[in-house]
Amino acid sequence: MTVTVPGPTLGVVGGGQLGRMLAEAASPLGVDIVVLDPTPDCPAAAVADQIVGDFDDPDAMAELAARADALTFEIELADPDLLDELADKEGIAVHPSPDALRTIEDKLVQKRTFGDADIPIPPFHRVDDADDLRAALDEFGSVMLKARTGGYDGRGNVPVTDPAEAEAAIEAVGGPAMAEAFVDFERELSVIGVRGEGEIRTFPVGENVHEDEILRETIVPARTTDEVREEANRVAREVLSHLPGRGVFGIELFETSDGEVLVNEVAPRPHNSGHWTIEGALCSQFEQHVRAVLGWPLGATTRRAPTVSANILGTVEESQPARLSGVEAPLSEPGVSLHWYGKDEVRPLRKMGHLTAVGEVAGHSPAANQNAERSGDDGATVEELLERARALRDGLSFD
C-alpha cells in the first residue's frame, strides 16, 4: 500500500459532533471530509463540506458517493441496504461493513450474534407484546426494556419491575423491543477498539459514569483491577473479531460484582466514551477511524497519561439558543481542554461539548505511560482529575 498526501476524500453519513471531530482529525492527514446530514449547517459543516439530505435519500447518498473515495458513517441511522447498493454500483469502499451495521443497529440481533459466539452478555428476552414482557419479568425478576432500534442516551430504555407496568412500558418504547435482565454491576466500562487491514488494536479500558442513562464522565484508566482490565480487553477483541469491516467500534461493558465482564452494547463508530483519546492518547479514536476506513496504517493506542473527560450537557428547562458562559475557567486550567460541538440550540440534557483533564507522567516513555495507572507528576490521581473535571464542567452555564 502506498499513501500520498493530499489524500482521498472521505464521505461520512451524519454530520453531528462525531462527524465534526472526524473532520478535525482528518485535516492534518490531508484527507478531505464531506458529510451528509438533513440539518442545514450541521455541527460538521464548520469544518467539512455538507450535502443536505436525509440519510435514506438515494439521490443524496449517490451524490455523497460521487464526491468521495470511500464511505463511512457516524450514526446508526445510515441505511445498510443503500450503502451496499452504492458499494456494488459505484465500486466505492464502505467501512465498517454494512453487515456490521445490520448486526448492531438492532439490539436483539446484536445480542443474539454475540450470544451465538459465546461472548459474555446479560440474559435477554425478545419482546413483541406485553405478554412477552411479563414472561421476561417472570424469568429475570426485573428488566431493562430496550427499543430494538433507534434508542440512545437512555431514549427507548424503560426499567420494569412490576408486571402491571407491562402495557405502559411497551407503549413507552414505541415498537419492537428486547428485555435484558438487570445486571448487578460494580461499574460500567468501555473499550474503544479499531479494526484495520488485518489487525485489531484497543485503547486502554475506560470507566464510564452515567446518570439518568446518559454518559457524564469517562475515567482512564478504569478504577478496577488489572485482571478486570485484561478481561475487558479480551472480551472487546472477541467482539471485534465478529464484526466485519474496518473502523472504530465503541464497546460498552458491565463489570459485575464477582468480576465478570459482560457486553452491554456496541457502536460501529467512534464513541462518546472515547473522546478522552483526543488529548489523552497518542492517536485519537477519530484519527484511527479515518486511517482504518481508508486502509492506512493504524496509529498507536497508547495512553499518554491518566485522563478524564466530562460531558457538557444542556442545563436548561426548555430549548433556547446556545451560548455557554464560564469558559474562561477551563481555558485557564493547565492540562484541561474544551471541545464545543457547534450546535446552535441547547436542549435539556443535549450533548453540547466536553472537557478533558489530562495528568502528566514525567520521565517515562509512552510505553511506560501505558502502565503508569494511578497518577502523574503533578500529583493528580484519576480521582483528583475527575474532581477537577467535574468542578470545571459544573461551573459552566447556558445564558
Rank of each mutant, 00 (worst) to 15 (best):
G154C: 03
H339L: 12
D226R: 14
A368K: 03
A117D: 11
E74F: 12
Q288N: 02
E211I: 04
V47W: 05
L240I: 10
V173M: 01
G353K: 01
G7K: 11
I200R: 10
E345K: 10
P244C: 09
N264A: 04
T224V: 09
I119Q: 10
K107D: 04
E180F: 02
G53I: 05
L331A: 13
A300F: 10
V358M: 10
F398C: 07
L145C: 04
P268A: 14
F73Q: 00
S142E: 15
D118V: 06
T202Y: 08
G280T: 06
M61Q: 05
V205Q: 06
K146N: 00
H289W: 07
K146G: 00
Q110I: 08
G198H: 09
E318N: 04
D49M: 04
N157K: 01
L83P: 00
A372P: 02
I214H: 00
S142Q: 14
A46R: 13
N233T: 15
V358E: 08
H125G: 03
K146C: 02
P98D: 01
A70P: 09
L243C: 12
E90W: 02
M21Q: 13
N311W: 09
E387R: 12
L86F: 01
P28G: 12
E279W: 00
A25L: 03
L396T: 14
P348R: 07
R223S: 10
N157F: 00
L331F: 13
G245V: 06
P96Y: 09
G314F: 09
D69G: 15
V13S: 02
A135E: 14
H364K: 12
R148K: 05
D129A: 07
I219V: 15
S27K: 11
D344Q: 14
T224Y: 01
V220S: 03
L386W: 06
F140M: 09
G53N: 07
T356W: 04
L101I: 08
S97P: 00
I121F: 03
E76H: 06
V3H: 12
V31M: 12
L101W: 00
L338N: 05
P268Q: 07
A305N: 08
R195N: 13
F55W: 14
P334C: 08
A236Y: 03
D49T: 08
R187W: 00
P348H: 10
A100P: 01
A65Y: 03
D399H: 07
L396S: 12
H339A: 06
S375R: 12
M21K: 06
V173N: 00
P159C: 11
G15E: 04
R350W: 05
V235A: 07
E76D: 12
E318W: 05
D37P: 06
P163S: 11
G16K: 05
H275P: 02
V5E: 14
V336Y: 03
R234E: 15
T307A: 09
Y152S: 02
G193S: 06
G151P: 01
T302N: 08
W296Y: 15
P334I: 04
G154S: 00
V346I: 15
I278Y: 00
I75D: 02
T224C: 11
T218Y: 03
S325K: 10
E165T: 10
V94H: 01
L243G: 09
P244W: 01
E265Y: 00
A362Q: 12
V293H: 08
V47M: 05
